[in-house]
């Protein structure tokens, strides 16, 4: 939709290799950065999930390596952003160290508690970052769509002509895409908003003698659900 917006609002000038570019208002880096942030969240709960398994050591190593890879990707992507969000890569940079140390020193339930305690605030920060970004993308899509519609109304072919049908079909595709984007973003935000509270509830449940270590699986499901929405959005 952003690409179509650039085309319909382009000034009356000769085409060049730089036509339809405007890096200052490009929302794509925002989207990529949030996708990476969500991937970190998914990989983090993967570590928790591995900690909760019986043969945890090999799984934790594997999950930690995946988390480290995602953190590195997030750090690279966030550097492309022009504002304070570039700090996002640092929010959860301590995860790996904590997981690595605690596995050696403590039994896994204590490791799980410590990791979750240290990560609670970062999980909240990460969720706020993703939800805040979704709001920005929603605002931007409203502007794109508004301008696309205004320009379409100015040049729309007359009623009862074949060109009108083709024209309206293109606009209908834009409207459908806009609706899909907004619905997906709202769903991601709703799913991500629940994650910090779920994380805290699971941590609290670990204090109970009867608690089992299956509960991180619920977090995994929520994070993966949100991740799937982002993947749909990119298609």
């Amino acid at each position: 939709m952003q690409g179509h917006y650039r085309v319909v609002t382009a000034p009356d000038a000769e085409l060049t290799t730089n036509s339809f570019l405007n890096e200052n208002s490009d929302i794509i880096p925002q989207l990529r950065m949030r996708e990476d942030a969500l991937e970190v969240l998914v990989k983090y709960v993967g570590v928790l999930d591995a900690l909760a398994t019986k043969d945890y050591e090999a799984d934790v190593d594997k999950a930690s390596i995946q988390l480290a890879g995602s953190l590195g990707k997030l750090a690279t992507t966030s550097k492309a952003l022009p504002d304070k969000q570039a700090e996002a890569g640092g929010i959860i940079a301590t995860f790996i160290d904590v997981v690595g140390r605690e596995i050696v020193r403590e039994k896994r339930v204590n490791a799980l508690k410590r990791v979750m305690d240290m990560s609670q605030k970062s999980i909240g920060d990460l969720a706020n970052l993703i939800v805040g970004g979704n709001l920005r993308i929603t605002e931007a899509s409203d502007i794109w769509l508004g301008r696309i519609i205004d320009h379409a109304n100015a040049i729309r072919p007359p009623f009862s002509t074949s060109s009108r049908l083709a024209f309206d079909e293109r606009i209908a595709e834009q409207l459908q895409e806009a609706r899909a984007v907004k619905e997906s973003l709202a769903s991601i935000s709703a799913a991500v908003t629940r994650i910090p509270q779920a994380h805290q509830e699971i941590r609290d449940a670990l204090e109970k003698k009867s608690s089992n270590l299956d509960s991180p699986k619920a977090l995994v499901q929520q994070a993966q659900q949100a991740d799937n929405f982002y993947r749909d959005l990119n298609q």
């Binding site: 609002t9 405007n22 208002s25 022009p82 605002e139 502007i143 205004d150």
Partner: peptide, 19 residues
Amino acid sequence: LLEIQDRLADLSLAAIVRD
């Protein structure tokens, strides 16, 4: 007015992506 509107829309997009 349409040219100014397109310019303002671009500026509001630029403002959205910045703190």
